[in-house]
Write a protein that binds this DNA or RNA. Structure first.
Lengths: 117, 117
DNA sequence: TGTACTGTGTACTACACAATACACATCCTC
DNA sequence: GAGGATGTGTATTGTGTAGTACACAGTACA
């Protein structure tokens, strides 16, 4: 798995092949941070940006927010909120799901979506 | 719902009715923090303790760790880890479950526990 | 060939977090 | 009524977070 910095840099350079708007400076300007800071982020120097900044970066580069946050060692605050509202329920549930293979979890996902809840 | 401080204080005073070992000072000593700090925590003054400290408090008072962390606005780092390992999968899943009533989630919990996974 | 843009290095900073240290007044209880 | 235990007020602190500011060297291109 890539680091946060590698992941962002690769994506930005990919987008830049077909669109000059994706230089480090232009992205940093749209996102609202200093170019030197984005440069550091892309080289994994220092602590990763805040959740808000990571979300803006992910959006500008059309990346999955949860994946970007995960690479930064974070969990989106709205997901945390889901757990905090019912800590016993979701705490236990997640620990039960922890080691289930993807396909088993996906089966549950489909069940919830199709079911008559 | 009670605040973190109220919740801890009530529990400690309850335990203390039948066991003098649960004075603020004695709990703080077992937990490894200053009495004045625990006093502030119980009165919701300042920012809540770190995850590690909250876990030790919860264990000393025999409280559910996830509930105590939730009252402090936190989510246990091992639960966060579960999400960070598979952010797309669990991100979507949790958002799907967000508004499901308890009984429906419990049905899923039982399914996972009893099922042939 | 200069000017405009590229990414990067160094120094600095404001703020929040997670506490400690210690004195103080009050209360049991023997 | 003396000594220890109880909870609390005030001041202070070290560490990490999340950046900014700005100068600098290399590259592109017109």
């Amino acid at each position: 798995m890539a680091t946060l910095g590698e992941f962002i840099r690769r994506r930005r350079e990919k987008l830049r092949e077909s669109d000059r708007q994706y230089s480090l400076r232009q992205v940093s300007e749209r996102v609202g941070i200093e170019p030197s800071y984005l440069s550091k982020v892309e080289r994994d120097i220092g602590s990763p940006p805040s959740e808000e900044t990571l979300i803006r970066i992910a959006q500008d580069l059309e990346l999955d927010v949860d994946v970007v946050l995960a690479l930064a060692g974070k969990v989106s605050s709205d997901l945390q909120e889901v757990i905090r509202r019912r800590p016993e329920l979701f705490g236990q549930f997640l620990r039960d799901l922890k080691d289930l293979p993807d396909h088993a979890v996906l089966r549950l996902v489909r069940e919830v979506r199709d079911g008559d809840w």
